[in-house]
Amino acid sequence: MLDLINVSKTFNEGTINEKKALTGLNLHIEEGEFVTVIGGNGAGKSTMLNAIAGVWPVDTGTITIDGTDVTGIPDYKRAALIGRVFQDPMTGTASALGIDENLALAGRRGKSRRLKWGISSKQREEYRNRLAELNLGLEDRLTAKVGILSGGQRQALTLLMATLQKPKLLLLDEHTAALDPKTAATVLDTTEKIVNKDHLTTLMITHNMHDAIVHGNRLIMMNNGKIILDIKGEAKKKLTVKDLLGEFEKASGEEFTSDKAILG
């Protein structure tokens, strides 16, 4: 489904701020895998997701999604294959537009934007049903501007937008990190439900080791722009946070420095 072959990216090359963010990264993900991604600050987690999404071109390597080499394709074109949810709830939705309009925009992802009226009554009905599944009461506020929604509601809506058309790949970049613990748990539950329902191939970055263990069926750990740990299947189910910390020290030769990752 997804292949990253020898992918490298260096920011500010040749300057004092040079940062080798990805250093020959290799990753293969099967269709239907739900992969959680952990690692310290600056490990390259978000950079990897941005490389897959096509926010900027990579320096070397090849990125293939569902058999298509997307390395030379910019983000707005790759969006046909990818659904994304960002860390900041403000990033994923257009605040000045209505809930229905945001969904309609997402409904045309990867298709041409025609001179045809944007929302039909049939689509509105579909949106109403999909919103009802979120259990947030948004189905009764279809034309409300997204700007008046809470962060959690906006993240849930972004999640729905990212999956309204079944994406080949769902990228979640710490999408619960900016939410309070209770809302974060609700959004994670919704994520789990949506991903399981459509068997979506998913990459989810989290700072929370517990979440990384509980959710998904594969876990990868990154350090210095590379994957240093890859656990799946039965082995993942038996993992504990303590195991992970031990594995990190073993694989990287240093202690896990981010308290946030441990305490979540």
């Binding site: 707005y76 403000m90 925009l105 934007r113 025609r114």
Partner: peptide, 22 residues
């Protein structure tokens, strides 16, 4: 329209718009 709506979202939130393939 679909196109006009995408122009409104472009002005409102470019990151979201790109993520939605605009």
């Amino acid at each position: 329209t679909e196109r006009g709506m995408s122009i409104r979202s472009t002005g409102c939130n470019p990151s979201m718009s790109k993520a939605q393939g605009i």
